[in-house]
Amino acid sequence: MTQISLTTPIQLSDWRDQELADLFATLPVGAAPSGHLHGKLFAVHGLTFLPRPLARGLYALLSTPLNPWRGKSFSNDKGSNHLLWLNGPALGHYHISQQTGADGQHSLWLDYNVERNPALLRRIRGEARQLRKDQWLCRMLWQTDRGQTTLLWFTLQGE
């Protein structure tokens, strides 16, 4: 098992999409998360033109109750997103598997194409790799007929 460590003293919310993709490509798939994990999102598609300090401030706001998304839960090969609090209402369910990611390396794959989800959510895919013990770096992808687009990045942190 890789000795996995926090990668950087630079806050990940300062990083651009391509910089995060570079980091992501160096990470191992690692251990599968389980239970409820806190989420923190950043590098939202379309906002990468913002200067880094401004983006950092915006993503700090998204970590406040202004953003109802609190994190995800994992149980065997299934999981859900949770709103308002970590055990709060579930929305957006996914099936979990290990697959080859967009960069050709193994990732933990979160597939939202499950019957419980509204049609709009079924186009979402998630990809996760372990950043350090109890922390995962993840990207949210949007599936179209022509391929996948990265919508945003987020971390999941164990309690």
């Binding site: 890789t2 460590s5 990668t7 950087t8 630079i10 160096t26 191992p28």
Partner: peptide
């Protein structure tokens, strides 16, 4: 260089 991380 901001950080050096040991890996496998």
């Amino acid at each position: 260089v901001m950080d050096i991380c040991q890996t496998d």
